[in-house]
Amino acid sequence: MSKATIVLEVLRYRPEQEQEPTFQIYESEYREDWVVLDAINHIKDHIDGTLSYRWSCRMGVCGSCGMMINGEPKLSCATFLRDYYPDPIRVEPLANFPIERDLVIVMDDFMEKLTSVKPWILREHEKPISEGEYRQTPAELARYKQFSMCINCMLCYSACPVYALDPQFTGPAAIALAHRYNLDSRDQGRSWREQVLSTEEGIWACTYVGTCTVVCPVDVDPAGAIQQAKLSTTTDWFRDVLMPWKGR
Protein backbone atom coordinates (compact mmCIF):
# COMPACT_ATOMS: atom_id res chain seq x y z
CA MET A 1 0.00 0.00 0.00
CA SER A 2 1.37 3.42 -0.93
CA LYS A 3 1.79 5.95 1.86
CA ALA A 4 -0.85 8.66 2.28
CA THR A 5 0.29 12.13 1.20
CA ILE A 6 -0.84 15.72 1.64
CA VAL A 7 -0.14 18.73 -0.56
CA LEU A 8 1.51 21.79 0.97
CA GLU A 9 1.61 25.05 -0.98
CA VAL A 10 4.57 26.79 0.58
CA LEU A 11 5.56 30.39 -0.02
CA ARG A 12 9.11 30.65 -1.32
CA TYR A 13 11.14 33.83 -1.44
CA ARG A 14 14.81 33.67 -2.26
CA PRO A 15 15.90 37.31 -2.62
CA GLU A 16 19.07 36.38 -4.55
CA GLN A 17 17.10 34.72 -7.34
CA GLU A 18 13.60 36.22 -7.43
CA GLN A 19 11.99 39.63 -7.08
CA GLU A 20 8.61 38.43 -5.86
CA PRO A 21 7.60 35.54 -3.61
CA THR A 22 6.15 32.48 -5.37
CA PHE A 23 4.37 29.36 -4.20
CA GLN A 24 5.96 25.93 -4.42
CA ILE A 25 3.87 22.78 -4.24
CA TYR A 26 5.22 19.91 -2.15
CA GLU A 27 3.66 16.53 -1.64
CA SER A 28 4.58 15.44 1.86
CA GLU A 29 4.00 12.17 3.59
CA TYR A 30 0.84 12.31 5.71
CA ARG A 31 0.42 10.79 9.13
CA GLU A 32 -2.55 11.28 11.36
CA ASP A 33 -0.48 12.39 14.33
CA TRP A 34 1.67 14.84 12.34
CA VAL A 35 1.47 18.60 12.70
CA VAL A 36 2.25 21.04 9.88
CA LEU A 37 5.79 21.47 11.25
CA ASP A 38 6.35 17.70 10.94
CA ALA A 39 5.39 17.87 7.28
CA ILE A 40 7.68 20.87 6.70
CA ASN A 41 10.54 19.08 8.46
CA HIS A 42 9.82 16.05 6.26
CA ILE A 43 10.03 18.26 3.17
CA LYS A 44 13.29 19.81 4.38
CA ASP A 45 14.86 16.41 5.15
CA HIS A 46 13.62 14.38 2.19
CA ILE A 47 12.35 16.62 -0.62
CA ASP A 48 13.92 20.09 -0.65
CA GLY A 49 16.75 21.04 1.68
CA THR A 50 16.69 24.68 0.54
CA LEU A 51 13.43 25.51 2.34
CA SER A 52 14.01 28.01 5.18
CA TYR A 53 11.85 28.39 8.29
CA ARG A 54 12.19 28.89 12.04
CA TRP A 55 11.40 26.26 14.62
CA SER A 56 12.80 24.86 17.82
CA CYS A 57 10.84 23.16 20.58
CA ARG A 58 7.99 21.44 18.65
CA MET A 59 5.74 21.79 21.71
CA GLY A 60 4.26 25.28 21.75
CA VAL A 61 6.74 26.71 24.21
CA CYS A 62 9.40 28.54 22.21
CA GLY A 63 7.16 30.59 19.93
CA SER A 64 9.46 30.23 16.90
CA CYS A 65 7.32 28.37 14.38
CA GLY A 66 4.45 30.82 13.81
CA MET A 67 3.23 30.74 10.19
CA MET A 68 0.13 31.63 8.23
CA ILE A 69 -1.68 28.33 7.74
CA ASN A 70 -4.51 28.70 5.24
CA GLY A 71 -4.41 32.42 5.98
CA GLU A 72 -4.59 32.12 9.77
CA PRO A 73 -1.66 32.85 12.06
CA LYS A 74 -0.88 29.61 13.92
CA LEU A 75 1.98 27.77 15.57
CA SER A 76 2.87 25.15 12.97
CA CYS A 77 3.83 22.75 15.79
CA ALA A 78 0.30 22.87 17.21
CA THR A 79 -1.66 22.64 13.95
CA PHE A 80 -2.54 19.10 12.94
CA LEU A 81 -2.52 17.99 9.32
CA ARG A 82 -5.62 15.87 9.98
CA ASP A 83 -7.71 19.01 10.46
CA TYR A 84 -7.10 19.86 6.78
CA TYR A 85 -6.56 16.47 5.16
CA PRO A 86 -7.20 15.59 2.35
CA ASP A 87 -7.33 19.24 1.23
CA PRO A 88 -4.06 21.01 0.44
CA ILE A 89 -2.63 23.38 3.06
CA ARG A 90 -1.25 26.80 2.20
CA VAL A 91 1.72 27.80 4.34
CA GLU A 92 3.00 31.38 4.33
CA PRO A 93 5.24 33.49 6.56
CA LEU A 94 3.51 35.51 9.29
CA ALA A 95 1.52 38.38 7.80
CA ASN A 96 2.32 42.05 8.53
CA PHE A 97 6.08 41.41 8.67
CA PRO A 98 8.69 41.73 5.92
CA ILE A 99 9.93 38.37 4.59
CA GLU A 100 13.59 37.57 5.13
CA ARG A 101 13.54 34.32 3.20
CA ASP A 102 10.84 31.70 2.50
CA LEU A 103 8.89 31.34 5.78
CA VAL A 104 11.34 33.41 7.82
CA ILE A 105 10.16 36.92 8.72
CA VAL A 106 12.14 39.99 9.78
CA MET A 107 11.22 40.49 13.43
CA ASP A 108 13.26 43.64 14.16
CA ASP A 109 10.15 45.82 14.48
CA PHE A 110 8.68 43.54 17.14
CA MET A 111 11.96 43.34 19.05
CA GLU A 112 12.24 47.13 19.09
CA LYS A 113 8.67 47.52 20.31
CA LEU A 114 9.15 44.87 22.96
CA THR A 115 12.21 46.60 24.43
CA SER A 116 10.56 50.03 24.13
CA VAL A 117 8.09 49.14 26.93
CA LYS A 118 10.88 47.82 29.22
CA PRO A 119 9.27 44.46 30.00
CA TRP A 120 11.27 43.78 33.11
CA ILE A 121 11.00 44.84 36.76
CA LEU A 122 11.82 48.53 37.14
CA ARG A 123 12.60 49.86 40.62
CA GLU A 124 13.06 53.42 41.75
CA HIS A 125 15.35 52.20 44.48
CA GLU A 126 16.85 48.75 44.29
CA LYS A 127 16.76 46.96 47.64
CA PRO A 128 20.20 45.74 48.80
CA ILE A 129 20.59 41.98 48.44
CA SER A 130 21.15 41.69 52.21
CA GLU A 131 17.48 42.68 52.75
CA GLY A 132 16.35 39.58 50.92
CA GLU A 133 14.05 38.95 48.02
CA TYR A 134 10.93 40.85 46.99
CA ARG A 135 8.16 38.73 48.40
CA GLN A 136 4.82 38.27 46.72
CA THR A 137 1.54 36.69 47.81
CA PRO A 138 -0.31 34.19 45.59
CA ALA A 139 -2.98 36.85 45.02
CA GLU A 140 -0.34 39.34 43.81
CA LEU A 141 1.04 36.69 41.47
CA ALA A 142 -2.43 35.87 40.15
CA ARG A 143 -2.96 39.51 39.07
CA TYR A 144 -0.38 39.32 36.29
CA LYS A 145 0.30 35.62 35.76
CA GLN A 146 -1.94 35.24 32.71
CA PHE A 147 -0.13 38.08 30.90
CA SER A 148 3.26 36.59 31.76
CA MET A 149 2.57 33.46 29.69
CA CYS A 150 3.43 35.23 26.40
CA ILE A 151 5.93 33.27 24.27
CA ASN A 152 6.66 36.17 21.88
CA CYS A 153 5.41 34.16 18.89
CA MET A 154 4.06 37.28 17.13
CA LEU A 155 0.84 35.57 16.00
CA CYS A 156 -1.06 38.50 17.53
CA TYR A 157 0.83 41.01 15.37
CA SER A 158 -0.03 38.95 12.29
CA ALA A 159 -3.70 38.87 13.26
CA CYS A 160 -3.99 42.54 14.25
CA PRO A 161 -5.71 44.67 11.58
CA VAL A 162 -4.59 47.86 13.35
CA TYR A 163 -0.92 46.82 13.11
CA ALA A 164 -1.52 45.94 9.44
CA LEU A 165 -2.78 49.46 8.76
CA ASP A 166 -0.43 51.33 11.07
CA PRO A 167 2.96 49.71 11.68
CA GLN A 168 3.70 52.42 14.27
CA PHE A 169 1.24 50.71 16.65
CA THR A 170 3.08 49.29 19.66
CA GLY A 171 1.04 46.13 19.22
CA PRO A 172 -0.69 43.46 21.33
CA ALA A 173 2.15 41.39 22.81
CA ALA A 174 4.33 44.35 23.79
CA ILE A 175 1.40 46.11 25.48
CA ALA A 176 0.30 42.90 27.22
CA LEU A 177 3.84 42.41 28.56
CA ALA A 178 4.07 46.04 29.67
CA HIS A 179 0.76 45.53 31.44
CA ARG A 180 2.11 42.34 33.02
CA TYR A 181 4.93 44.35 34.68
CA ASN A 182 2.59 47.23 35.57
CA LEU A 183 0.47 44.74 37.50
CA ASP A 184 3.48 43.21 39.27
CA SER A 185 3.65 44.25 42.95
CA ARG A 186 7.46 44.34 42.77
CA ASP A 187 7.50 46.78 39.86
CA GLN A 188 7.56 50.58 40.10
CA GLY A 189 7.86 51.45 36.42
CA ARG A 190 4.24 52.10 35.52
CA SER A 191 4.40 55.87 35.09
CA TRP A 192 7.56 55.42 33.03
CA ARG A 193 5.90 52.84 30.74
CA GLU A 194 2.85 55.04 30.43
CA GLN A 195 4.94 57.48 28.39
CA VAL A 196 5.17 54.79 25.70
CA LEU A 197 1.78 53.14 26.23
CA SER A 198 -0.50 56.11 26.71
CA THR A 199 0.09 57.55 23.25
CA GLU A 200 -1.70 57.48 19.93
CA GLU A 201 0.66 54.73 18.77
CA GLY A 202 0.24 52.86 22.06
CA ILE A 203 -2.97 51.68 23.67
CA TRP A 204 -5.10 54.38 22.02
CA ALA A 205 -4.45 53.01 18.54
CA CYS A 206 -6.22 49.76 19.48
CA THR A 207 -9.83 49.58 18.34
CA TYR A 208 -10.51 46.39 20.29
CA VAL A 209 -11.01 44.10 17.33
CA GLY A 210 -9.83 41.25 19.53
CA THR A 211 -8.20 39.00 16.91
CA CYS A 212 -4.99 39.04 18.98
CA THR A 213 -6.78 37.21 21.76
CA VAL A 214 -8.42 34.79 19.32
CA VAL A 215 -5.12 33.64 17.80
CA CYS A 216 -3.04 33.65 20.99
CA PRO A 217 -1.83 30.05 21.47
CA VAL A 218 -1.27 30.48 25.23
CA ASP A 219 -4.44 32.41 26.21
CA VAL A 220 -2.68 35.62 27.20
CA ASP A 221 -5.65 37.79 26.10
CA PRO A 222 -3.71 40.84 24.86
CA ALA A 223 -6.97 42.60 23.93
CA GLY A 224 -8.07 42.35 27.56
CA ALA A 225 -4.68 43.68 28.70
CA ILE A 226 -5.04 46.69 26.40
CA GLN A 227 -8.57 47.39 27.67
CA GLN A 228 -7.37 47.19 31.27
CA ALA A 229 -4.49 49.52 30.43
CA LYS A 230 -6.94 51.99 28.83
CA LEU A 231 -9.07 51.93 31.96
CA SER A 232 -6.18 52.51 34.37
CA THR A 233 -4.74 55.27 32.15
CA THR A 234 -8.15 56.96 32.03
CA THR A 235 -8.45 56.71 35.82
CA ASP A 236 -4.97 58.26 36.12
CA TRP A 237 -5.96 61.02 33.73
CA PHE A 238 -9.03 61.99 35.71
CA ARG A 239 -7.12 61.80 38.96
CA ASP A 240 -4.35 64.03 37.61
CA VAL A 241 -6.88 66.57 36.34
CA LEU A 242 -9.29 66.51 39.26
CA MET A 243 -6.72 66.06 42.04
CA PRO A 244 -3.46 67.50 40.66
CA TRP A 245 -2.04 67.78 44.19
CA LYS A 246 -1.99 63.99 44.46
CA GLY A 247 1.24 63.24 42.67
CA ARG A 248 2.10 59.69 41.84
Binding site: E194, Q195, S198, T199, W204, K230, T234, D236, W237, F238
Partner: peptide
Protein backbone atom coordinates in the same frame (compact mmCIF):
# COMPACT_ATOMS: atom_id res chain seq x y z
CA UNK B 1 2.00 62.44 27.01
CA UNK B 2 -0.48 61.45 29.69
CA UNK B 3 -2.27 64.73 29.09
CA UNK B 4 -3.37 63.39 25.71
CA UNK B 5 -7.10 63.99 25.48
CA UNK B 6 -7.75 60.41 24.37
CA UNK B 7 -8.81 59.15 27.86
CA UNK B 8 -11.67 61.69 27.92
CA UNK B 9 -13.07 60.55 24.58
CA UNK B 10 -12.57 56.91 25.46
CA UNK B 11 -14.42 57.48 28.73
CA UNK B 12 -17.33 59.13 26.88
Amino acid sequence: MRKSSEPVFWFL
